[in-house]
């Protein structure tokens, strides 16, 4: 169902190859999706899947993971779904450090509903609801995840497909909340509004503007403008929700045995 030039298929391929490398099995993998172009990915999957309401995928995934921590729970959301309407759940899933892998495809706009602006639409960009240029600023998904407490934060692009696959694999392997932001072209809407009508122009844009942290640091203001960092951006090893909860249950059981209040 995705348009020619859309990056979703590349992200999906990267994710499925990562699943294969990690020998994920269909029955103990649950892919939870939100609403949007990327949210329709479950239609192409043979794993367990839950296609949810707009913005709420992480909250559904939280319940699944809390009820059965042995499951691999992977959450697919777009920028509108995951951090605009669903921003509150994104913050709190990261804060709780739920052992989930969130793969957020960021194409800077709402593709499915006709290319309206989202919380990640860059300032001054054109969308079908910012025809005079976006008067609002964009949100950095990765920085949000990092301050909210995610154990793993990385950004890739669909131009850098192999690297994206490695980042997704690392994220899946990471206990706790892991985020991979996959920057991806929407030639149909965002591209056509912003002078990149041909899919290849958007891929060239990603090729040129996505740089490593080292390369980014060497850029000086104002040349940095428009560039963004790809690769692993943050990593920590804080215990995840289920680990902490299990510890608490142990304390309660121990205290009850000794007849003392927990």
């Amino acid at each position: 169902m995705w348009c020619p030039g859309c990056g979703n298929g590349i992200v999906l391929g990267a994710m499925l190859r990562a699943f294969e490398e990690l020998e994920y099995e269909l029955h103990n993998t649950v892919v939870v999706t939100g609403i949007g172009c990327w949210g329709k990915a479950d239609d192409y999957l043979l794993t367990n899947a839950l296609h949810t309401t707009h913005g709420r995928a992480l909250a559904f995934a939280t319940g699944i993971k809390a009820a059965n921590p042995r499951l691999h729970v992977v959450v697919l959301m777009g920028d509108g779904d995951g951090i605009t309407i669903g921003g509150n759940h994104f913050i709190h899933a990261a804060r709780r450090n739920m052992d989930l892998t969130a793969i957020v495809v960021n194409n800077y706009n709402y593709g499915m509903t006709g290319g309206q602006c989202s919380g990640t639409t860059p300032a001054d960009s054109y969308t079908s609801t910012t025809l005079y240029g976006n008067p609002e600023r964009e949100l950095d998904i990765c920085r949000l995840a990092e301050v909210a407490g995610a154990n793993y934060v990385a950004r890739g692009t669909v131009y850098h497909g192999w690297e994206l696959q490695q980042l997704i694999k690392e994220a899946l392997n990471k206990k706790g909340f892991a985020l991979v932001e996959a920057v991806s072209p929407c030639p149909t809407h965002f591209g056509s509004h912003n002078g990149m009508r041909e899919p290849v122009e958007m891929l060239n844009h990603l090729k040129e503007k996505a740089v490593t942290m080292d390369a980014y640091r060497q850029l000086k203001e104002p040349e940095r403008d428009g560039y963004f960092v790809i690769g692993k951006l943050a990593e920590r090893d804080a215990p995840d929700f289920s680990t902490n909860y299990e510890r608490m249950r142990g304390r309660i059981a121990g205290a009850r045995k000794e007849g003392e209040p927990a």
Partner: peptide, 12 residues
């Protein structure tokens, strides 16, 4: 989020 998590847990 509460009802979402409840539905998720029930499916588990």
């Amino acid at each position: 989020a509460s009802i979402a998590a409840v539905i998720g847990a029930s499916l588990a």
